[in-house]
Design a protein around this nucleic acid. Structure first.
Lengths: 166, 166
DNA sequence: GTGGCTGCAAAAAGTTTGCAAGAGG
DNA sequence: CCTCTTGCAAACTTTTTGCAGCCAC
């Protein structure tokens, strides 16, 4: 037989992710429940930074009875175990993403709210220097840059050339 | 006569600050009210990063009838006019400080919550580079470093040497 | 005088908690 | 089985809003 159908691949990917989550949970001493697996897989299934409400919506499509409180409790648990990271952009509510080995920072577009991740090891090094100067021991850090992304900048230029209202 | 008494100096400093605020308000087209002056002078009178509740407490000592809503409204107004800056450390509530010409970032102690300001122009330059690489136009940024300050580190070491409970 | 500001209370929005019933190991 | 988790609703926290009266200009 040849390769499976696309839909089958999706199911395979998903069940593969669930398997990995189960072993991750075991190794971290997290009790396994369907709710927790569905919530965690909402984050493994995307590269976006999801709000609690986003996650609640996604999760309800698979198990319509999951309550918002369970989503909050689970996210706090996973955060405590280091599986996911919490962010606050633009002083809004919390957003979550999977924790990855390599630390990265964020460029946030103030027009379309897109989040671009970037990595600047030299900046990290300079932070260490700045902290050392004040005898400060770094535990973690957060760097957020706000501005206009490439797409919005291009769109803005077009609008200037072809103004709808003069 | 010689120099004025210390208490008099305090009053002088304060009335001097009020005078400066009044002219600042005038130049920014902010209507002058006693409430607004008292709220703004709570921030000119300190280098700390005050929460809304902090400011409300301070302000009530001078004018006990000022409502929390007025504090919020005034802070939003002053923020909009660029007179003050809003920060969110450790995903808590908002804190405010006076806006200064030179941008600085923050070291936040996760034990005693002290905030130390620092300035690293080279980091700013590297941010520009990182943004340029993604064709991103920077509008503003926020860098927060969390860790242990010198005082707490020293205190922790002492505690290790002289443990109260073995 | 009158439009903007204030105080109060009520509402919003995001998040946490108490509790009885249910599920995991 | 016994503990930990869940769903629901209610509570809590921070911030915003509606409105009548008041104040700055």
């Amino acid at each position: 037989m040849k390769s499976a159908k696309p839909i089958q691949n999706d199911i395979n990917r998903e069940s593969e992710e669930i398997k990995q989550l189960v072993s991750k949970f075991r190794s971290l001493n997290i009790q396994i429940t369907p709710q927790r697996l569905v919530i965690a897989s909402a984050l493994t299934g995307t590269e976006k930074h999801l709000s609690v409400e986003d996650i609640h919506q996604i999760v309800r499509k698979k198990n319509s009875k999951i309550g918002l409180a369970t989503v909050y409790r689970t996210l706090n648990l996973l955060k405590g175990k280091g599986l996911i990271e919490e962010h606050r952009f633009n002083d809004e509510f919390s957003r979550y993403e999977l924790h990855t080995e390599s630390h990265h920072d964020h460029l946030i577009c103030i027009e379309c709210e897109t989040v671009i991740e970037f990595d600047q090891p030299v900046i990290e090094h300079l932070q260490d220097l700045a902290a050392a100067e004040k005898n400060f021991t770094i535990v973690s850090h957060r760097l957020q840059i706000y501005g206009i992304c490439e797409n919005c900048a291009t769109a803005n230029k077009k609008r200037e050339k072809n103004p709808i209202s003069p």
